Deep mutational scan, measured.
Amino acid sequence: VEPFVCAQCRTDFTPHWKQEKNGKILCEQCMTSNQKKALKA
């Protein structure tokens, strides 16, 4: 199985991968920080 790479921070290690609607693969940490930024905006 090919390891995923986060589209935002380029890490290849995370407990959980998330896929955005646009198809980008993000690590759990980037997904969480993006959600917090969206709530602040």
Rank of each mutant, 00 (worst) to 15 (best):
Gln29Ser: 05
Val5Ser: 12
Cys27Gln: 00
Asn22Thr: 11
Thr32Lys: 10
Asp12His: 11
Glu28Val: 07
Trp17Lys: 14
Ile25Trp: 03
Gln29Gly: 05
Glu20Met: 11
Trp17Val: 11
Cys9Asp: 03
Cys6His: 01
Ala7His: 15
Ala41Glu: 09
Leu39Ala: 07
Ala38Met: 05
Thr11Asp: 11
Cys9Thr: 04
Lys24Cys: 04
Asn22Glu: 14
Lys21Trp: 10
Thr32Asp: 03
Asn22Phe: 02
Arg10Cys: 15
Leu39Gly: 13
Trp17Ala: 09
Pro3Glu: 13
Val5Gly: 03
Pro3Ile: 14
Lys40Pro: 13
Pro15Met: 07
Ala7Tyr: 03
Pro3Asp: 01
Thr14Val: 12
Pro15Phe: 02
Asn34Lys: 03
Ala38Gln: 01
Ser33Val: 07
Glu2Trp: 01
Val5Ala: 12
Phe4Asn: 14
Glu2Cys: 07
Gln35Pro: 04
Glu20Ser: 06
Cys9Glu: 04
Gln19Ala: 12
Glu28Trp: 03
Asn34Gly: 05
Gly23Gln: 14
Cys30Asp: 02
Cys9Ser: 00
Arg10Asp: 10
Asp12Thr: 09
Ala7Glu: 13
Glu2Lys: 02
Arg10Trp: 14
Ala41Ser: 10
Val1Leu: 06
Trp17Pro: 06
Glu28Asn: 10
Cys9Arg: 01
Pro3Ser: 14
Phe13Cys: 11
Lys37Val: 08
Trp17Glu: 13
Met31Leu: 03
His16Asn: 02
Ala38Cys: 05
Gln19Pro: 12
Asn34Trp: 01
Ser33Phe: 00
Asn34Arg: 05
Gly23Leu: 12
Glu2Gly: 03
Asn22Gln: 12
Lys18Trp: 04
Gln19Thr: 02
Lys18His: 13
Pro15Gly: 08
Lys18Asp: 07
Thr11Pro: 09
Asp12Cys: 12
Lys36Cys: 03
Cys9Gly: 03
Glu2Val: 04
Asn22Ser: 14
Cys6Asn: 02
Pro3Trp: 04
Ala38Asp: 10
Cys6Trp: 00
Gln29Cys: 01
Ala41Val: 12
Pro15Val: 10
Glu2Pro: 03
Asp12Leu: 04
Pro3Gln: 14
Glu28Phe: 02
Phe4Leu: 10
Cys27His: 10
Val1Lys: 13
Arg10Met: 15
Lys24Pro: 11
His16Pro: 04
Leu26Arg: 06
Cys27Tyr: 01
Glu2Tyr: 06
Lys18Ser: 10
Gln19Gly: 14
Ala41Arg: 08
Leu26Met: 14
Leu26Phe: 10
Ile25Gln: 09
Ala38Ser: 11
His16Ala: 07
Pro3Ala: 14
Lys37Gly: 09
Lys21Met: 08
Leu26Ser: 07
Lys24Asn: 04
Leu39Phe: 01
Lys36Asn: 12
Lys37His: 05
Ala7Gly: 14
Ala7Asn: 12
Met31Glu: 09
Phe4Thr: 06
Asp12Gly: 09
Lys18Gln: 07
Leu39Trp: 04
Lys21Ser: 07
Pro15Thr: 11
Leu26Glu: 04
Asp12Ala: 11
Phe4Arg: 05
Glu20Phe: 00
Leu26Asn: 01
Glu28Ser: 09
Cys6Ala: 00
Pro3Val: 08
Gln8Arg: 15
